[in-house]
Nucleic acid binder design. Sequence first.
DNA 1: TAGATTGTTAATCGATTAACAATC
DNA 2: TAGATTGTTAATCGATTAACAATC
Lengths: 214, 214
Amino acid sequence: METKQISKAVIKRLPRYYRYLGELMEDNVERISSNELSKKMHTTASQIRQDLNNFGGFGQQGYGYNVHYLYTEIGKILGLDTVHPMIILGAGNLGQALANYVDFEKRGFKLVGIFDVNPVLEGIAVRGLEIQMLSELPFFLRENNVEIAILTLPKNKAKEMADILVENGIKAIWNFAHLDLETPDDVIVENVHLSESLMTLSYNLSKYRQEHVE
Amino acid sequence: METKQISKAVIKRLPRYYRYLGELMEDNVERISSNELSKKMHTTASQIRQDLNNFGGFGQQGYGYNVHYLYTEIGKILGLDTVHPMIILGAGNLGQALANYVDFEKRGFKLVGIFDVNPVLEGIAVRGLEIQMLSELPFFLRENNVEIAILTLPKNKAKEMADILVENGIKAIWNFAHLDLETPDDVIVENVHLSESLMTLSYNLSKYRQEHVE
DNA sequence: TAGATTGTTAATCGATTAACAATC
DNA sequence: TAGATTGTTAATCGATTAACAATC
């Protein structure tokens, strides 16, 4: 349907615009020009205008952008105007940390289930939800409407569970496991590879050290 | 000193090469060609050769790359051959999750301290380290050699603490707080904005839905 | 030696920045 | 109307892919 393909780079920047606009709203700023915003965000006004115009003309010549309007529109583009039921697979520290992120629910990401393999955890409540056994997952998926699955399981288990998720019609996986999931094209996977992020940091640190040896 | 500037895109790919090479080693694969590796990783052989040649000629014509050698060399480039003492600021679920990542220590990222504001947590042991009060941080930094600080504090507190870290000579911050830190140029900041990652997922989900309405 | 595959240069593609006419 | 600032086209820059000579 949509033919105009929007680049990944643009999409990755949208949530950051959204965050800055939210802060401007908190500061009761009513309007902002691409130039002012570019200074705040350490980017170029040109990029901001180009990015936004992928989705429509949200501004007004001679005026700039209405902060509240732009915030709402970017929210819609990001799909934050609808509820996304989600489940967490893996109730370890990371899974529990994500379960307790208050901001998520505020943005429409509603946690409806949390699962683990460890029988010791069964029935323990996290954010008002009792931890269920992973073996109950297929049944749960058939009985409930779930959009997003968060994978905070170890590598092997994650791979296995990804297959089960796909079989049961899950269309989006937020993957924290250290592997690249092999899923059909119509399943959206967003990876968070924490160790890779830390290695990037380490690279920059090492490079800096090398360049500044006395 | 070093003048050849290596692009951020290349650096972001290095940890992924490192991961795949590690898996190949586990499978006892001795050598691999850029072409074979490109198929495994869903990228192009050309990109792999270009990326690696930023750092030197690690391969051999007619043979390919020795897996173990390349793994070790990329490890060195990423600074994984030295120990990086690090501290965690924020002993909530996320901080504790990161503290318990076994893989980090294996790669030289050695946790030497964990701090929080909450007095209730004081003295509780996480991975063999007693949680300390954030007020003790400046003293700790003067007495101990710390390279990396992991920020898993809420926004406001994170901003305040970043200043203290910089004042006390910390050169690298792994930032999980939902804000862009304002730090001097010689301080390396690597951001993990989880909510932005989830919004990207949400965008793709919404777009997919729009394109497939019955 | 012949075959394979790298390292590297050249061509293409895409993303960012600059410029400016349109318009509020 | 004059000034400001967008939306958009054109120019530049950088990154990816293709091609091939070098060489193991």
